[in-house]
Simulated scan of single mutants.
Amino acid sequence: MKTKRIVITGGPGSGKTTLIHHLENKGYNCIHEISRDVIREAQQEGIEQLFLTNPLLFSQKLLEGRYKQFMSASENQKGLLFFDRGMPDVTAYMDYIGSHYPKNFSETCQTNRYDTIFLLPPWKSIYKQDNERYESYEEAEKVYDFLLKGYRNYNYEVIEVPTGPVQDRCEYIVQHLKKLF
């Protein structure tokens, strides 16, 4: 089996990173989210919230970074490769804030295809704001809607992962993938 690129996405605070770490601890190859790195880099340069200050620059940095992550996954590598967010997250967030973006953003998302998309729904009992997560829970719910619409606009079948213990979420994904591949 060639490498299968699998995205784990969802609104802020839905448990994506916890799930990615759990999958990694079970021996799966995982590519980690880069948005917090971009945010911290901007904060070191004196820009508290780059996404709010210059959403296009922030999104360009994310798209470039996620494209590099995507390309780093060798087609000759075997097995499953999980991504904490995918390139279409960038355009979904831009749509969420109502910002225009260059045509190449959509072209990049359409041309470089993932194999499977898992979407984590909002989960109020685990949601927490922090220095990099500025959205309220209500905003996180709206982001979820834009992510679902965004991935569907790129003709992906989106699989929603039920809330619950991380082990159960992991098992849901693994069992679903066994049916697909």
Rank of each mutant, 00 (worst) to 15 (best):
Y156K: 09
Q110L: 14
E141K: 14
E64V: 09
S35D: 12
R66F: 06
V161S: 00
E41D: 15
D145M: 12
G11Q: 05
S59E: 05
L80G: 01
P165E: 15
T17S: 14
K124D: 06
S72Y: 07
S35A: 15
S106Q: 14
E64D: 12
E132L: 10
N104F: 15
P88D: 01
Y156N: 07
L180D: 13
G65K: 04
M71Y: 10
E48W: 10
P102D: 13
G10V: 01
T111V: 15
Y96P: 09
D145N: 14
P122Y: 02
I126G: 00
T53I: 02
T91P: 02
I34V: 12
K124M: 06
K16F: 05
K2A: 13
T17W: 03
Y156D: 05
Y28S: 04
L120M: 07
K4G: 01
R169N: 05
I31C: 08
Y93K: 05
E171P: 09
P121R: 07
E171S: 11
C109N: 11
R40T: 15
P165N: 14
H100S: 15
P162S: 06
P55E: 04
L120F: 03
F58E: 00
N25S: 15
L177M: 06
L19N: 03
L147V: 02
L50M: 06
E48V: 11
T17D: 04
F118P: 01
C170W: 04
D84Y: 10
K124S: 07
T17M: 08
G86H: 01
P102F: 11
N104G: 08
G65R: 04
Q44T: 06
L63H: 04
